[in-house]
C-alpha cells in the first residue's frame, strides 16, 4: 500500500505536455521570485542606506544604490557608540546591552520553569491539575494592556521600577504561560509506561525528570528558547512603560530617536541602528530554521 509519502509522488505539473510543463514551472518560479523581492527589498534597502552619506540620502531618498566612492562603514560605528539618543551620546550600545541583559535571563528562567511545569502537568496527576493547566494557558492570551497598571504597582512595591531586573521578572512571568504550554504539549507524547517503569524501579520525581524527561527534551528546549528570545527581544510596550532613559531596551530606543520629529535626521545612522536591532532575532531565526516553524505551528494551533 502507498504510505504517507504519496504526496511526494504526485506531480501537479504532469497533467500537460512538455511545453506546458515548462511554462507553468516558469510561472511558478516567476511568481515566487516577485514575492521574494517584495519580502527582501525593504530590509535590503535599509541595509544599503547604512553605507551612504547623509547628503546622498537627503538628496535622493532611501531607494537608491550606494555610490562606490562614498560608501563607508563608519555609520555603523557611530550608531553603536556615539549617536545621540534622548540627550546622551553613547549610541545604541547601552540599549543593546539592556536588551541582552533582559532577554537572556528571562529566556533561561522561563524555559527552565516551563520544562518543570510541563513535566508535572503531563506526567503527574493531582487534584485540579486540568484547571491549573487551563489557568496557566489563559496567561498566553492576556492582553498586555490589562496588566500594565498592576505590573507598575507590583514593580514599584518590589523596588524594581525602571530596572532591567523588573523587565526580566515581567517577561519571565508572562513567558511561563507559553513555555509551560509548549513543554506540556510536547511531553504528553512521551509514553507513560516509561515513567511507570521508572517509578517501579524506585525512581522519584527529580530522578525521572533528570533521567527520562531532560534527555528527551532538546527539541522542545530549542523551540522554546527561540520563541522566548525573539519574543522578548522584540517586545516594546513593557520596555517603554516600565523603564525610561538609559534603562530602556533597544526597541524603545529606536522609537525614541526615529519618532521624535525635531532636529536633523541622521538616516544612515538610524538605519544602522535599526538593522542592528533586527540582527539577533534574524540570526536565531536562520540558525533555528525548522524549530522556529515548529514553535509557530505549536503556538498557533494550540
Amino acid at each position: 500500500m502507498a504510505d504517507t509519502s504519496t504526496h511526494e509522488q504526485f506531480d501537479p505539473l504532469a497533467t500537460g505536455g512538455m511545453r506546458r510543463r515548462i511554462t507553468s514551472k516558469g510561472i511558478v518560479y516567476g511568481a515566487l521570485s516577485v514575492f521574494a523581492l517584495i519580502y527582501i527589498a525593504p530590509l535590503l534597502i535599509i541595509l544599503l542606506n547604512t553605507l551612504r552619506p547623509l547628503e546622498d540620502i537627503v538628496r535622493t531618498g532611501f531607494i537608491a544604490l550606494p555610490d562606490a566612492e562614498t560608501m563607508t562603514l563608519r555609520y555603523w560605528g557611530e550608531a553603536w557608540g556615539s549617536f545621540c539618543i534622548g540627550g546622551t551620546c553613547e549610541g545604541v550600545s547601552r540599549f543593546y546591552k539592556n536588551s541582552l541583559l533582559m532577554t537572556i535571563p528571562a529566556t533561561i528562567l522561563s524555559t527552565m520553569i516551563g520544562l518543570l511545569n510541563g513535566y508535572i502537568l503531563s506526567k503527574w496527576r493531582f487534584r485540579y491539575d486540568g484547571l491549573i493547566f487551563g489557568l496557566i494557558t489563559l496567561g498566553v492570551f492576556m492582553p498586555q494592556q490589562m496588566t500594565l497598571l498592576p505590573w507598575a504597582f507590583v514593580l514599584g512595591k518590589l523596588g524594581l521600577s525602571n530596572t532591567i531586573a523588573g523587565l526580566v521578572f515581567v517577561h519571565t512571568v508572562q513567558g511561563i504561560s507559553f513555555t509551560t504550554l509548549f513543554c506540556r504539549n510536547y511531553f504528553v507524547s512521551i509514553p507513560d509506561d516509561l515513567i511507570k517503569a521508572a517509578r517501579i524501579d524506585g525512581a522519584g520525581f527529580w530522578r525521572i525528570f533528570r533521567r527520562i524527561i531532560l534527555p528527551l527534551s532538546p527539541p522542545i528546549v530549542i523551540v522554546t528558547v527561540i520563541w522566548q528570545f525573539t519574543g522578548i527581544w522584540n517586545e516594546f510596550l513593557f520596555g517603554t512603560v516600565f523603564t525610561s532613559g538609559g534603562n530602556q531596551p533597544i526597541t524603545s530606543a529606536i522609537v525614541a530617536f526615529s519618532g521624535s520629529g525635531t532636529g536633523e535626521r541622521h538616516y544612515n545612522i538610524e538605519a544602522a541602528a535599526v538593522i542592528m536591532a533586527a540582527l539577533p532575532p534574524l540570526f536565531i531565526y536562520i540558525a533555528g530554521g525548522k524549530y522556529f516553524v515548529r514553535g509557530l505551528t505549536q503556538g498557533a494551533v494550540k
Partner: peptide
C-alpha cells in the same frame, strides 16, 4: 525568505516601512 519578517520586531518593520512609504524618503 517569506517567513523572516515574523522574526523581526514590529518596531523594526514599522520603521523600515515608514521610510519607504514616506514621500520625502521613499
Amino acid at each position: 525568505i517569506y517567513l523572516y519578517p515574523l522574526a523581526i520586531s514590529f518596531i523594526v518593520t514599522g520603521t523600515v516601512w515608514r521610510w519607504i512609504f514616506h514621500p520625502n524618503t521613499g
